[in-house]
Design a protein around this nucleic acid. Structure first.
Lengths: 325, 325
DNA sequence: TTGTATGCGTTATCAG
DNA sequence: CTGATAACGCATACAA
């Protein structure tokens, strides 16, 4: 009797033991397909893998996928990755999974302005939760994101605490919501600290040559003894390269803090803002399971990143000892 | 009638059109759960995400996952990622998916010596195919791998063709099957070309400081004008760093070719051996669908990587022009 | 408290 | 060639 499995409290202890023994002996495990059919839910969440977010330098989505997979398993469900044939028009791929009832809902990543997915999912009453703000509609609260502004702010305060007085910012071109958010943290923190100088910033796309050019220009402006906060680990790689080419040592001649804390930051021993992907995954799964909390009309959840201090932002004491060449 | 969907040739053209019209009108799509139940197959392949292979510097498995997902979708199935609670003892996680019939079989990655998975899967008659050789048992042919030896060999020949005469090798410590395989390509090629020198090699683990130390030692040995083949992009990053620190330019003062062709190689503009992950995924899915070919007892499939030439291995002509400092 | 029957949405079989 | 029907394995409601 399946009561033993699903409501053990409704069954006599003695029969429970007997049936349980049989279950163990036979190695019985319920079939997901039959369960899904009966319960009319797949027990799986779809996750679109788009090449914009995956497999790129400084990608963190692979880690997020691991966290999501683990978290889903703990809640008795699965993650079904899928790709859209045309990444500019992903809706058909979502529609397929919904229509064949392979996924009960979706985890959105790489949310952007004019993202067609939230509206479509809302219209079709498909549950979803986003890693990344839903920028188009403040009324939508089914998202979790990392607070880029407060992260960069913390980085600036950290650098100021280490004794840096000229703190520049190497970010993305204006217009990307994530980039603008991170930059605002730099503006706020330098203003608060009385270190503001709107000149001390440079913009670069996520390509290394571009990052190197931007970093070089910024370094010319700032000079030795300054610090730079980078909007991503890729930008930091560019900055790091320019430092090396100029014979400058990160954390000694120039302070460096970057965002994302990918393997690159770790490998290069760069201080970085670590995104709490385990907590993001946990909250996303929670949202998916319960739906957005109607008592909380304020919006989604903003998680602060954690600053991981490495040698690229050494305290002032260490910096005084110049390394012999 | 479902004959229209599953065997349209057995149905009168007129009824077919009529029923098809209804299907389109109603937007009917078969439910995967019901199909799975009826056909007694999940239509999904399990893929273990272990933190050894994912989210690490120079990881290519995220790209492989995309290829696998796309390929599976083309064949009407899905990929179900999962993690093992204890990555040293992954079998229970496999067992769960089999028992609840969530996955019909598995794609193995990160195969290693004394890997318990192939034997277990064979014993339980669970279909599987590996990306990476099954090292323990030459009788097992259900794998696809990239031919590291021939790849490195091609890299050495390429460098020799560019005019390099001292070609060193920066690899992993002895004992890893993949590393030994790649190294053997260097030995073979340098021997064939009469450029062999067993001294010209260094060994390093996949950490940047270690790679830098090893690369520095190797460079001391080889001197300017030599070339280095690296067993991975991470090792190449170490070599690249040492070059920069010494004021040497890759492709001008030192030739550099690495393995894996990850985002790092692309960002640093390093020549690299590109693994044909799309073809690997395709063959793995083919193996899964058909089982290993009994007419081919010779073993699995070895695909040659493709050398992507970038600025770090410029032809000799370009090298003659020394850059002004 | 325990056992039994029904139906979830398919596909395959079989009688018409 | 077509339409009806049983069975896949489970959960649930209901009868015993």
């Amino acid at each position: 009797m399946s009561n033993v499995i699903n409501s053990p409290e409704r069954v006599a202890p003695e029969t429970l033991a007997r049936v349980q023994a049989e279950i163990d002996r036979l190695g019985f495990r319920p079939s997901r397909a039959a369960q899904s059919l009966k319960q009319e839910r797949a027990g799986a969440w779809g996750l679109e893998l788009n090449s914009a977010g995956f497999g790129r330098l400084g990608a963190i989505l692979d880690i997020f996928l691991i966290e999501l997979t683990t978290g889903a398993a703990e809640r008795g469900s699965h993650v079904v990755p899928f790709t859209a044939a045309d990444s500019a028009a992903p809706l058909p791929a979502y529609e397929r999974l919904v229509a064949s009832r392979v996924a009960d809902g979706f985890v959105l990543t790489d949310t952007r302005r004019d993202d067609p997915r939230p509206a479509w999912l809302e219209a079709h009453h498909v549950p979803y939760a986003a890693f990344g703000r839903v920028w188009d509609d403040p009324g939508i609260t089914s998202w979790v994101d990392v607070d880029g502004a407060s992260g960069v702010e913390a980085a600036v305060h950290h650098l100021a605490g280490q004794g840096y007085e000229r703190i520049g910012y190497l970010g993305w071109p204006e217009g990307s919501p994530v980039g603008d958010d991170r930059r605002s943290g730099w503006v706020r923190a330098t203003t608060d600290l009385g270190l503001a100088n709107p000149e001390w910033q440079a913009r670069s796309t996520q390509s290394l040559p571009s990052a190197c050019r931007a970093a070089a220009g910024l370094l010319d402006l700032l000079g030795r003894g300054a610090a730079i906060v980078c909007a991503s680990d890729t930008l930091a790689l560019g900055a790091w390269r320019v430092l090396l080419e100029r014979g400058l040592e990160p954390g000694v001649d120039i302070g460096l803090v970057c965002f994302d804390d990918t393997d690159i930051a770790e490998a290069l021993d760069l201080s970085s803002l670590h995104q709490p992907l385990d907590r993001v995954a946990d909250r996303v799964l929670h949202l998916l399971a319960t739906g957005p909390d109607p008592r909380d009309p304020a919006g989604g959840l903003l998680l602060p990143p954690e600053l991981v201090v490495r040698s690229s932002s050494k305290p002032a004491g260490n910096r005084t000892t110049r390394k012999e060449k």
